[in-house]
Amino acid sequence: MAEASIVFKLPVERAKIREFALAVGEDNPIYFDAEAARMAGYSDIVAPPTFSVTQMWHLSREEREERLGANLDYARVLHAEQEFQYKRLPVAGETLDATMRISRDVTKQGRRGGELRFVTYESRFDDAAGEEVLRALYTLVQTSKDPGE
């Protein structure tokens, strides 16, 4: 029986911020140096805009699929779109409360024939005060079994 949502924690750890920032070629000191981050108005080093993808460390695809029950066939699935909506960026030392649900599941006729199914996994991340920090919308597309090509 599929669940409506999955609740999990996303720790925003200093070393993880550094590792992630380096992986996207960052050199902005606000990701590495607490003093530079404070000069820019943050309380500590800040997480890069796409940092919340590290949720994959805390919620695997297998668990997500099993619990939300989208029944996607991953041999035919591509990452179609990604969206982030920000109230602010997370800072080191926070642990965010994440809630993931399927916010969209539509099937469209593909341009080359066959059906395309779009599934959006929406994660909302709240801080310790219960205030929303950001949302991440991860949209997958499943191509037709018979692409008709």
């Binding site: 070629g25 902005n28 890069p48 805009p49 179609a80 779109e81 909506q85 920000y86 602010r88």
Partner: peptide
């Protein structure tokens, strides 16, 4: 992630970001 990096440099930092959307 590289695109967000470029954009945050263009805009003087990522702190003002309110929405970032990409299609692959």
């Amino acid at each position: 992630g590289y695109l967000a990096h470029a954009a945050s440099d263009w805009l003087g930092g990522p702190g003002g970001f309110r929405r970032f959307k990409v299609r692959f």
